[in-house]
Structures are given as structure tokens and as C-alpha cells.
Amino acid sequence: MVQINLEQREITIKIVYYGPALSGKTTNLQSVHQILDPDVRGRLMVLDTSDDRTLFFDLMPVYFKTSSGFTVKIKLFTAPGQIMHNSTRRIVLQGADGVVFVADSQKSLSQANNDSWRGMAANLKLNGIDVDDVPMVIQFNKRDLPEIRSDSEIAEVAEKGKEPVFKAVAIRGEGVMETLDGILRLTWRTMNARFGLEEKLQIQEDAFIKHILKNSVMLSSQRTLQSRGDSQ
């Protein structure tokens, strides 16, 4: 849950990357870490096993100070994908302000995507969060692999659902910043509607995004969201 500390003039937002095992959640964070300006992000903390599987979570803090003196801190977490870590996933999801669901584009893993989604909804519910209330974007990762769900299939899925959909090849850094931009905007809009952040922090959505992403995002994602933003 967003932590707004008016006395210390600080706000902390939590974004969680969730998805089936090996769908590329850690790779997303690694790419974001590489692309973001070192001035606005901390070290990438990876808590993994010897075979590079996420054990508890990965964490990267992103932060900036507004001109009105507010410190904005965004913590990007990944949840572990392996089935056995369900309790850890639930703990990581606690108080999530926004969720990026990283789906695997491979056709053979559609069932794994669906199972993971259902698990996420159940875990959110156990944390007192309704899956329909939390800002959420879906990323179809691994677009460079063969035997994947086609662009038209994904476009069809995107049309049906309310969640903005992004395509990515996280390992090459493609689409990861668009995804981040998408979830940050959606989360900002939701929190602004609930808590009046623009008034409290004296900062508008575009300026909020610009502080974090600076020039590292292509404009395409903004267009995608703007077209959806009206219906949100």
C-alpha cells in the first residue's frame, strides 16, 4: 500500500512484477536497471539461488525529489515464479500499488500463464486486494522466440481485457521501459484519484513520469495508454 508520510514529505509506491516461472520478471528488472539513469535508481538487489532462480524477490528502488521537496520512492519488486514459493509470492504482493503481469508468449506456456494469473488473484485476495481494483498491465515477453502467440492473437486479447498489454523482449531491453511507463502512469492515475497526489505533491502525471524515465522511453507507450486512459 502506498505510504504517504506528510511529516517527512515522502511517498513510497510499490510495484510488483508477477508471472509464471521463467517468464522474465528478473530480466525485466535487470534491463530497467541498465536503462534507467543511475541518479534515479539504487542497486538492483537479486536474491537468487545458485542456478539463478529467484529465491525471495528482486528489488530495485527508484527515487527522485519533486520541486516542492517531496521524496518519491518507487520500489520495483519481482515475485518468485517457482510453484513452491507461493507463500513468498503472497508476502511480496502485500500492499502492491501496481502489478506488472509478465506472461510468457510461448503457446506451450499459455496454461502456466493462466495458472499464475489465478494464483495471483487468489494471493491478492488473501492480502485484501481485489484483482479488479489494483492497477495492472500485462506484458507478453519473449516475442523473439518461435511458436509464440501471434501479434493478432495478443491484439485480440488486449481488446477484450481492461489491462493495457505490452509486448517485450526483456533480454534485449525491448518493451521493458514501455511496460514500466504503462504501470507507473496507471498507478499514478489510480492513486491520484484516491489520494489527490497531484495536489499533495504539486506534480502532474507527465512530470512524475519524466522524473523517473527521463528520455529512456519511446513515445509509443504513452500513445497506447492515452488512448486507453479515457476509458479508465
Binding site: M1, V2, Q3, I4, Q94, T190, R194
Partner: peptide
Amino acid sequence: MSRVSSPAEDASVLQR
């Protein structure tokens, strides 16, 4: 659901 909280309320170490 997001809500304004004080750090002391948070249950998990991740929010501490």
C-alpha cells in the same frame, strides 16, 4: 487496495 499507511502498521519486512 492502496491506502495511506504509516510504516509502523506494515506487517512485512518489505515495507519496513
